[in-house]
């Protein structure tokens, strides 16, 4: 499948106001992002969970005076 022109990709992302002068540089960085992503598409275990700092804290009992 042919990739759409970069200007179309920017417009689809809502970045149609992105300055013309910077678009070549951004396109180069977008390719770096896509190359990095491709290198990280490794086999991951079905239950292999991401790093995760989400921690729930128990609610304070009613009347604990928060």
């Amino acid at each position: 499948m042919t990739e759409p022109p970069f200007a179309d990709r920017l417009a689809a992302l809502g970045l149609h106001r992105f300055p013309e002068a910077d678009r070549l540089g951004l396109e180069r960085l977008a390719k770096d992002v896509e190359a990095a992503a491709a290198r990280l598409r490794l086999p991951y275990g079905y239950e292999e969970e991401p790093s995760n700092v989400f921690r729930l804290l128990p609610a304070a009992p009613k009347g604990a005076g928060r």
Binding site: D22, L29, A30, V33, L40, Y44, P50, S51
Partner: peptide
Amino acid sequence: RQRIAAGAFVRGSDLVNALRLRAR
């Protein structure tokens, strides 16, 4: 402008892959 906007091209599943690898 360029460095931050490049993040628009990160797919959701690729970000999760990065976070899975980060845990490793």
